[in-house]
Simulated scan of single mutants.
Amino acid sequence: MPASQLTLVFLHGFAESPEIWADFTRDFPAGYRVLTPTLPGHGPQPSPVTDYAMEAQARAALAQLDAAGADKVLLVGHSMGGYVALALAEAQPERVAGLVLFHSTALPDTDEKKAARDESAGFVRRHGVEKYMRSAIRPLLAPGNRKRLAAGLKQLEDIATATPETTILGCLEAMKHRPDRTQVLREAKYPVLFIGGHDDPAVPLETLLPQLALPAQSHVLLLRNVGHLGFIEAPELTRRAVLEFAAGIFRDSIR
């Protein structure tokens, strides 16, 4: 990477869009280039998609990085965006300067989680995306944050309900079948930052904690009173953690 610049790539999660990063990345240091790719089937004008597998989504993200001329990058992936980041890192590890799993995991779905995804898909088919999303996003926030963050919750719900049903169903199926990528963490020659919430129902701490020991260089931020959406539940703390992590990588790159 150029000594004067580090590229930070923020990958949004399931039924999200690059819009979730707008406030989070505002006024980042001038030496950091920020890219927020749109994952397949998402965004305000989604293109038709036939393959939602994490590997296919990683290829789509890589195509956007190539178009932007981004070579060595720091990957930040929220939830499903973390699954995509891991697939990207597996495919092209030489391009990764660092990895942030932001409420995400390298583990595959458990049988219980797979069954829950099937139930969600059935609900969507019967009742539609809007009804599903209006009930699915609120529980991702820690209980004490749901009233306090009503505006942020509504923004996420609006983004999610605008996501096509084909994308919702395709991603649910793809996440259900994603492989175990803990080996990516074990083989990482770059530092990894884990950001987790004590009240995260999607990535419980008991499943996240054992992963912290897998990378050779591991950093961690675990937050009380935070669920699955730390970028709006604790924006100052999570933003500072990402910037400090990036600063360490930036310093190493220019030595």
Score class of each variant (00 low, 15 high):
residue 109 D to W: 03
residue 146 R to D: 04
residue 146 R to E: 05
residue 121 A to Q: 14
residue 98 G to C: 08
residue 102 F to D: 14
residue 144 G to I: 02
residue 94 E to M: 04
residue 125 R to N: 05
residue 98 G to S: 09
residue 121 A to L: 02
residue 125 R to L: 13
residue 152 G to Y: 04
residue 121 A to R: 14
residue 109 D to M: 03
residue 106 A to G: 15
residue 115 A to Y: 02
residue 145 N to A: 14
residue 144 G to W: 03
residue 136 A to L: 02
residue 123 F to T: 01
residue 101 L to K: 08
residue 123 F to V: 01
residue 139 P to D: 02
residue 105 T to W: 04
residue 133 M to I: 05
residue 114 K to W: 01
residue 119 E to H: 09
residue 143 P to T: 07
residue 129 V to G: 03
residue 118 D to Q: 15
residue 137 I to H: 04
residue 114 K to H: 02
residue 99 L to K: 13
residue 134 R to F: 06
residue 93 P to C: 11
residue 101 L to H: 12
residue 131 K to I: 03
residue 122 G to I: 00
residue 107 L to W: 06
residue 137 I to C: 03
residue 148 R to A: 15
residue 111 D to E: 15
residue 133 M to W: 10
residue 151 A to K: 11
residue 139 P to K: 06
residue 133 M to D: 03
residue 145 N to P: 00
residue 140 L to R: 13
residue 121 A to W: 03
residue 149 L to S: 02
residue 105 T to P: 09
residue 135 S to W: 00
residue 121 A to C: 10
residue 147 K to L: 07
residue 125 R to F: 07
residue 106 A to R: 05
residue 116 A to M: 09
residue 106 A to C: 09
residue 128 G to P: 09
residue 145 N to W: 00
residue 149 L to C: 00
residue 149 L to N: 04
residue 102 F to V: 03
residue 150 A to M: 09
residue 134 R to A: 05
residue 116 A to P: 00
residue 132 Y to M: 12
residue 120 S to A: 15
residue 107 L to G: 06
